[in-house]
Amino acid sequence: MAATVETFRQGRSIPQNLYGRGVPDQTVSIVTDALDKWFALLDGGRYDDAYASPPVIRAIPLTLASREILCEDNAVVRLTFASTDGADLPAWTPGMHLDFTLPSGRRRQYSLCGDPAERNTYTVAVRYIPDGGGGSTEMHSLEEGAAVTVRGPRNGFPFVPRGNAVFVAGGIGITAILPMVRAANAAGMDWHLVYCGRSRESLPFLDEIEALPPGRVTIRTDDAAGIATGPELLERAGTGAVYCCGPPPMIDAVRRAFDSVPATHLYFERFSPPPVRGGVEFEVQLVDTGEIITVPSDTTALQAIREIKPDVAYSCQQGFCGTCRTRVLSGTPDHRESRLTPEEQESEMLICVSRAEGGRIVLDL
């Protein structure tokens, strides 16, 4: 999971190029998280910061207390972690996530999906992705008693519990959405959940979701009804907010349809990187080996480098966590992120999204 959020009012132009320069794309920094001004923008200056817990930067050691397979295809596991010393853990609110450092050293982000009132545990759910870079494989292999370290909770996808809301979740995107649904229901909001997936066998939390109040939930699977269009996903959208979490095609469909509905706010979180847009082919030379790697116009530098160095560090793949920051020894980067300061951009780049302005760039990997 990677926590990126964009917020729009109806009638405001939606950026067409998430990776492009000069695009009014509001990506939340992994360091600053919940800045007061940003939260004010989310609700037109009416956001109450009582809804957001302060970000926690320190590392927290956790122990895996329990694990449970959640869906019939066995691809999603729910993992509940407890503090190693039994003390209460930092509070969290719907939409928050944790940055995990796994035993291998990999860093990955996963949304909290348990009960915020349970202060002694954190719960996440992870879908196994065979070619996903090893993070989900490692999470699925954890046994009870395993030790991990987390940073957070951090909020890149805040929920405002007022008015009415439509929640759109695709597959494992339900992990970020479900705590919001619970909070909306508890607050007596007018809400509706649209939950999509390949098949019922692939949908986690299905028992809990089907037990929600009648008429509040639409479950749609590709094998029974086909892939939903944007207008179908937003059919129940009223004058309030839309919260969407899922794969890029779903998010793109919702974004395209948003201006045709009366909703005033759109918040979404991506669980995988969007496609590269407006890229040009360039070369990367690795200073340690001298190898020269061609990066096609539709491929990220990270993806191309991983073909040669599969152990290269990365996490969010969206240009905000900073895990893949790399020193630039020669060449001109085309910075397509919001993480580095202008001074840092003079000598570093984030290879998951940033590129080169043609020609060759030499990296200290």
Score class of each variant (00 low, 15 high):
Tyr51Glu: 13
Glu232Met: 04
Trp191Gln: 01
Ser315Ala: 13
Leu142Pro: 14
Ala241Ser: 15
Ile361Lys: 10
Asp88Gly: 14
Arg162Cys: 15
Gly226Tyr: 08
Gln317Asp: 10
Gln16Met: 11
Thr264His: 00
Pro231Gln: 01
Asp334Val: 15
Glu281Ile: 11
Cys316Val: 04
Val124Phe: 09
Gly240Pro: 12
Pro274Asp: 04
Glu118Leu: 04
Asp99Arg: 07
Ser13Asn: 04
Val353Ile: 15
Glu118Ser: 10
Phe167Glu: 02
Gly11Ser: 01
Ile219Cys: 09
Gly240Glu: 05
Arg67Gly: 09
Pro130Cys: 03
Ser104Arg: 09
Ala304Asn: 04
Gly319Thr: 01
Thr121Ala: 14
Pro61Ser: 07
Arg9Asn: 11
Arg182Pro: 09
Arg46Val: 11
Ala301Cys: 11
Gly188Ile: 02
Leu212Glu: 13
Ala50Asp: 11
Phe268Gln: 06
Met96Gly: 04
Ser330Asn: 09
Pro103Lys: 07
Ile209Val: 15
Tyr110Gln: 07
Arg306Trp: 01
Val217Lys: 06
Arg106Leu: 15
Val217Tyr: 09
Asn17Gly: 00
Thr80Lys: 14
Asp298Leu: 00
Arg220Asn: 14
Leu329Pro: 12
Thr221Ala: 14
Asn74Asp: 09
Val312Gly: 02
Gly145Tyr: 03
Ser104Asp: 08
Val362Tyr: 03
Ile219Asp: 10
Leu178Asn: 03
Thr294Gly: 00
Asp223Lys: 06
Trp191Gly: 00
Val168Ala: 05
Cys196Thr: 15
Gly156Asn: 04
Gly230Glu: 00
Asp207Gln: 12
Gly170Glu: 07
Thr63Asp: 05
Pro333Trp: 00
Ala87Gln: 11
Asp131Ala: 09
Asp43His: 11
Val217His: 10
Leu64Trp: 14
Arg236Ala: 13
His140Val: 12
Phe8Met: 02
Ile308Arg: 11
Phe258Ile: 06
Ile57Met: 12
Ala176Met: 11
Ser199Gly: 15
Ala253Cys: 05
Met139Tyr: 02
Thr229Val: 11
Pro54Tyr: 00
Phe282Val: 13
